[in-house]
Design a binder for these strands. Structure first.
Lengths: 231, 231
DNA sequence: GGAATAGTGTCTTTAAGACAATATTTT
DNA sequence: AAAATATTGTCTTAAAGACACTATTCC
């Protein structure tokens, strides 16, 4: 008689608001860990979810309704961290541009965007703090040698916006010059990040130049640079 | 009534023999896929395995008896790739110096070291070809910015041996000079890769100089360089 | 000595860091 | 014009690539 074993999916959804990297958390209604914040997740439904990725996508849609720009598997956690029994949790992490949570999601799920510096001080459900730490480490590594953080921006973006997203992720200043050089590198053989020819509009009252807008012509998840930005 | 769901562990064990990167495969005795080669793996035993890593370690010990230098989680595969039902497979990959398979393992398990160029031509069980491809990609990436391939060598090793392991993994020539410079970089603050002061003995009949031997003073899994070796 | 292999010196190349100078826009 | 922000030019720096030259050992 095989022991009870539950397979779940947990998602770490990142976005950047202003100068802060934030993570989506939902307040748990039921035991265990009722009242604590947790990652949006749920059970793998073997009759409907083709695989773990499909489960993650479904749960994000059902629980958050957010448009997700990028989703990838992070790591799988297993053991007895859930008092109800042995659990295997396939964790994913996702990137999206900043969106207000719909009032429904916000109230029914008690969902909030939580700055990552604050997450360290919270007591989270299950091993979700460990999962967030791992996702953060992965995001920070990839931010230094890929273009993934562009997925925290809307469709059209400026170099300055990209620098500011990177600064929120890496907690260090980044030279826009370097980022522009990377755009040129990427475009060497093929136009992948193209200037739209328009300038970013300034919000009312904002002074300054208004940066050149760029947009992607294709997915960039597999573009990696041979060097990292420095620590 | 929850559907049947099996959680398994599969391991991709790499070693380098001569100039070839090889992977451990076992011939399956039972259906499904009887007679086909497969990765050494097995079911997660929730009453004895603390977590997936423990399961991987146990299965490697039971099935291969090999000494493993390095083991890390690769990715988790899920879906209906096993005709017996929905499966979640936590894949790991491991590195070890070349060891002859014990006669027992070799006969009972029908285990062999298989060069990776040949794996492409084989028909493997389940989705094990995909898993090997993913592990290979990960190994090749890490080989370019970490010291992990040192785990394919014995305790004491020469720069030339390291270059030759890298060449087997990357399928391209590597400058020993670059590797020595990396040793110096790593040792900048702390002695991590130290010269033993002895030279590698030459096998009988072998001519040449006999390289300087080095050894590790601590684990190197978390040492990453800021640049990659070139493609 | 010659062949084979290993280690060293040093010049080149690539791409990031640093920062001053210039450009654009709003108040 | 002054302030704020963005972009460009260009010098510096870090570390890999390339390769010739020297060193060691066995036949």
């Amino acid at each position: 008689m095989p022991q009870q074993l539950t397979v779940t999916v947990d998602n770490v959804i990142f976005t950047v608001v202003g100068n802060a990297l934030q993570v989506l958390l939902v307040k748990r209604a039921a035991e265990p860990f009722a009242g604590k914040y947790a990652l949006p997740g749920g059970k793998l439904d073997t009759s409907n979810d083709k695989d773990g990725n499909a489960a993650a996508t479904r749960i994000l849609r059902e629980k958050t309704g957010l448009a997700i720009n990028y989703l990838e598997q992070l790591k799988t956690y297993s053991g007895d961290f859930d008092p109800r029994g042995y659990t295997v949790s396939m964790a994913h992490y996702a990137l999206t541009y900043h969106q207000e949570l719909s009032p429904k999601v916000k109230s029914v799920e008690n969902a909030v965007w939580m700055p990552v510096e604050i997450v360290g001080d919270l007591s989270l459900a299950f091993i979700h703090k460990e999962i967030i730490d791992d996702a953060l480490m992965r995001l920070r590594e990839k931010a230094r040698y890929s273009l993934l953080p562009l997925y925290c921006l809307p469709d059209q973006f400026t170099v300055a916006q990209y620098a500011s997203v990177l600064e929120a992720i890496l907690n260090k200043s980044v030279y826009p010059k370097t980022l522009l050089r990377r755009f040129e590198l990427v475009n060497k053989d093929e136009d992948i990040i193209i200037a739209t020819g328009t300038k970013a509009p300034l919000s009312p009252g904002q002074r300054g130049k208004g940066g050149d807008l760029y947009r992607l012509t294709k997915p960039i998840a597999s573009i990696n640079f041979s060097r990292n930005l420095m620590e």
